[in-house]
Amino acid sequence: MKEQTPLPPARCDTTQRMQVIAAAQAIGIPRDYGRLHHLRVVREPRKLVCIGEDIHGRHQWLAPRAARAWQRMHDAAANDDVVLQIVSAYRSASYQLLIVERKLARGQSIEDILRVSAAPGYSEHHSGRVVDITTPGYVALEEEFELSPAFAWLQREAQRFGFSLSYPRGNRHGIAYEPWHWCWRR
């Protein structure tokens, strides 16, 4: 039996993205969020390519050129005996809003949420060029990833494939240090 190709996730067009940003403002995200954090509204890609499953068995997606760069980087790391695993990749503005709403429902303040996540409409994940990465033996989405051989390899090699760390310590966006968050910038 042939395995079916998964369908890409829904994407937000310009009108939907502006509706999501308005909904985010209605739940407490400041109207001047972009200016305050030196972030722009992120356009979502027209096309997405499946890059495989994440550590939870969910299909993940990137824009085509970023997907090719990810595959080259992933393979090069494997050739160096380094395992790069996907935690998260493309995420729509609508999905980012759901994440914020869930965190609010669990009692987190909007200020605390925005220290660790970009506001809906402003996340690099919307671009289809970002991969959150982990490696076996390290807790996903935790700073301890910086102690891994995978992080050391990424620091040395990721730029060769067009990837860079988006949120180093003390970044100008006011987003927490994320050693796992790598964006393809070519």
Rank of each mutant, 00 (worst) to 15 (best):
V49T: 15
Q85R: 06
N79Y: 04
C50G: 12
V87C: 06
W184I: 05
A140P: 08
K47Q: 14
P64V: 03
A77N: 06
A63T: 09
T134F: 04
R46W: 02
R65V: 10
A69M: 12
Y138S: 01
R11C: 01
P149H: 08
Q71W: 05
R106F: 11
A66C: 08
R156Q: 13
D32C: 00
W184E: 07
Y122A: 06
Q16M: 06
L48A: 04
G128Y: 01
L104Y: 06
S94E: 13
R115D: 05
Q71N: 09
Q4N: 13
K47I: 05
G162P: 08
S166N: 09
R186A: 12
M73T: 10
E144L: 03
I113V: 09
P6M: 13
L48H: 11
H74Q: 15
W61H: 07
Q25S: 04
P136C: 14
R72V: 00
Y138E: 05
Q4P: 08
F163P: 13
N79D: 11
D112C: 03
R35I: 04
V20H: 02
R106W: 10
I99A: 09
I86T: 09
A78Q: 11
H38Q: 10
P120L: 13
F163A: 06
T135Y: 11
D81P: 00
A89H: 07
C183D: 14
T14L: 12
R68W: 08
A119N: 06
L62T: 10
R35H: 09
A93P: 03
L84F: 04
R35K: 15
R91V: 02
R156W: 00
M73F: 02
R160H: 13
I27A: 03
A22C: 00
P179I: 10
A26P: 00
G174K: 03
Q71T: 11
E144F: 01
H74D: 11
R17M: 04
Y177R: 13
H126E: 15
W153Y: 15
P9F: 04
E143A: 15
L114T: 10
Q4C: 03
G52Q: 08
I55T: 12
R91S: 12
S94F: 01
H181P: 15
R40I: 00
I99N: 14
W182H: 11
L165M: 15
V100Q: 05
F161S: 07
P6D: 14
P9Y: 03
